[in-house]
């Protein structure tokens, strides 16, 4: 018969062996990847709800026509040298030639400018089987990883109609020389002399959902949220009234 001390020793040894096996099993277990199913992107754009704010925020207000698409470019730049593209990010901008009929605000010498419209952006996300605690700390490192990369349309993009008349509310990019939306909304289309506000945020729309295929039969639900929609503050106003309001707001 074993002495009590020896029995105790084997008991403790047994516990240690079982514990070590269980721990190594825990370390080696390959849990499946936590697949990304849904994503939400909040865009913090300056959104205005009145005509006066729109006119105030713009450095330049011009009327004229888009004549052609010049080029597509990467708006994401290397912060160390912005003349270079950002090698890690891709934000697609479409540059259009815009022929100016009238400069309603600001000093502009040339009669043709390039206007940039942000079109889309590439979103990258890494999914893995890492075990993460409630505060976002990784408790157990990933043994499997999968990087998803896909393009998401910019919620503000509206393709301009060539040869139609528009009034645009713009800022100038001092580094590249082109012009871009000062705020959202920033564009009024003039159709048969009647001004129409151009914006995807009309009727107080503020969220945009897209189901994006990411390979195989998998999709990711992407919900873009711009924060606030707008009421149509142009409807019912005449073109003369708008031009008059711009000249008094200067």
């Amino acid at each position: 018969m074993l002495k009590a001390r020896t029995r105790g020793f084997f008991l403790v040894l047994g516990i240690i062996v079982v514990g070590a096996c269980a721990f190594s099993f825990f370390l080696k277990t390959d849990s499946p990847i936590n697949e990304t199913q849904a994503m939400k992107i909040f865009y913090d754009y300056p959104v205005v709800s009145t005509f006066d704010e729109m006119a105030e925020e713009a450095e330049f207000i011009v009327s004229g026509r888009y004549t052609s698409l010049d080029s597509k470019w990467n708006m994401a730049r290397n912060p160390e040298n912005i003349m270079e593209e950002d090698s890690e990010n891709y934000v697609e901008g479409w540059l259009y030639h815009f022929e100016i009929d009238d400069v309603l605000k600001g000093n502009l010498e040339s009669s043709t400018i390039l206007v940039n419209h942000k079109y889309s952006q590439v979103i990258t996300t890494t999914e893995s089987n890492a075990v993460v605690d409630d505060e976002g700390n990784i408790l157990k490192a990933a043994t499997k990883e999968n990087t998803l990369s896909f393009s998401v349309h910019d919620p503000m993009f509206i393709e301009p109609e060539l040869d139609s008349t528009y009034i645009l509310f713009l800022l100038k990019d001092k580094d590249f020389g082109n012009y871009y939306a000062a705020v959202e909304p920033f564009s009024i289309k003039v159709e048969n002399g009647i001004p129409e506000l151009q914006s995807n945020l009309l009727n107080n729309t503020k969220t945009f959902s897209e189901e994006i295929a990411v390979g195989g039969d998998r999709t990711v639900d992407v919900l873009c949220d711009v924060g606030m929609g707008v009421d149509d503050f142009i409807s019912g106003r005449s073109l003369e009234d708008i031009i008059q309001a711009i000249s008094t707001s200067k």
Binding site: Y43, M75, A76, R77, I82, D86, K118, D175
Partner: peptide
């Protein structure tokens, strides 16, 4: 990030 020609904050 550095997004030029953009009023995104």
């Amino acid at each position: 990030f550095y997004e030029s020609s953009s009023s995104l904050y």
